[in-house]
């Protein structure tokens, strides 16, 4: 059971060059994969192809061995700007929209809706509130609840933390962690993946529409995405002055490593 992309290319109508060129990728059940790269590197396009929202101009995508259009229920997708998705009168209707579309019986819809709202950590008191009146961070959570309500096996999140404040980012990171722990396969596109590096299994780096790195996150693969951080920089400096620290992405992980090295 896996999601497979073979030699996928995509060109937007009227665009000069392809947004994605011959990308091949296999994502196993339960993996947390972060797709990163600069703006315009093709992150959104790639995950839209993988989710079957757009059809590759070349190559093929299969989801658990099926064509994406036959596997719609296996896929959940939250777009970057939640206000583009939200349109119902209440949070409850908004989240129930997906399961209703799937033609499920009403009591099953209610059960799934409640579970999804609990999973993202929104208070059930907000179920009768209009989604548009919520803060930006809450809208993002509602949009994710919508994407997971029908219990997809694969969840795609496009820039889930962009534009959020510290609390919002922390909540999103925690939510991704708990979804992974619950066995969901999560694929995140992000231009700023530092928060997720300690918990992700794989980092896929795109540059100009090509996959230039795919594997466990490393300083080298981050460099290919043009991403560096003070923590990475300091680890390098410490190594060159004789303190033998491990490669680390978060300051907390580096602190652990420094304590070890100084012992």
């Amino acid at each position: 059971m896996s999601l497979k992309a073979e030699d996928v290319s995509y060109r937007y109508p009227g665009a000069g060059g392809p947004a994605i060129s011959s990308a091949s990728l296999e994502i196993g059940k339960g993996e947390l994969v972060v797709v990163c790269g600069k703006n315009g590197s093709g992150k959104s396009t790639l995950i839209r192809c993988l989710a079957g929202l757009i059809k590759p101009s070349q190559g093929r995508v299969s989801i658990d061995g099926q064509a994406p259009e036959k596997a719609r229920r296996a896929i959940g997708f939250a777009v970057q700007f939640p206000e583009r998705a939200l349109f119902e009168r209440t949070v409850c209707d908004e989240v129930a929209f997906g399961p209703r579309n799937m033609g499920l019986p009403p009591d099953e819809v209610d059960r799934l809706t409640g579970q999804a709202i609990d999973a993202v950590g929104i208070s059930r008191d907000l179920m009768s509130v209009a989604p548009r009146s919520l803060s930006y961070g809450r809208k993002r959570l509602v949009a994710i609840a919508c994407a997971i309500a029908h219990r997809p096996g694969y969840l795609f999140l496009d820039e889930p933390a962009a534009g959020l404040d510290y609390e919002g980012r922390t909540r999103i990171t925690g939510l991704i962690k708990s979804l992974k722990a619950a066995g969901m396969t999560v694929i995140v596109a992000s231009h700023d993946p530092l928060d997720l590096l300690d918990i992700c299994d794989r980092l896929v780096v795109l540059d100009g529409g090509r996959v230039v790195a795919d594997g466990p996150p490393s300083v080298e693969s981050l460099g290919r995405a043009g991403i560096t951080s003070d923590t990475i920089e300091l680890a390098r400096r410490l190594q060159s002055c004789g303190i033998n620290v491990r490669e680390a992405f978060s300051p907390e992980a580096l602190a652990d490593s420094i304590v070890e090295a100084l012992k």
Binding site: D230, L234, P251, E252, L254, A255, V259
Partner: peptide
């Protein structure tokens, strides 16, 4: 990040 690191080291 470096502030988090100095806090983290203090905690450790």
């Amino acid at each position: 990040e470096m502030t988090r690191l100095s806090n983290g080291l203090r905690d450790r």
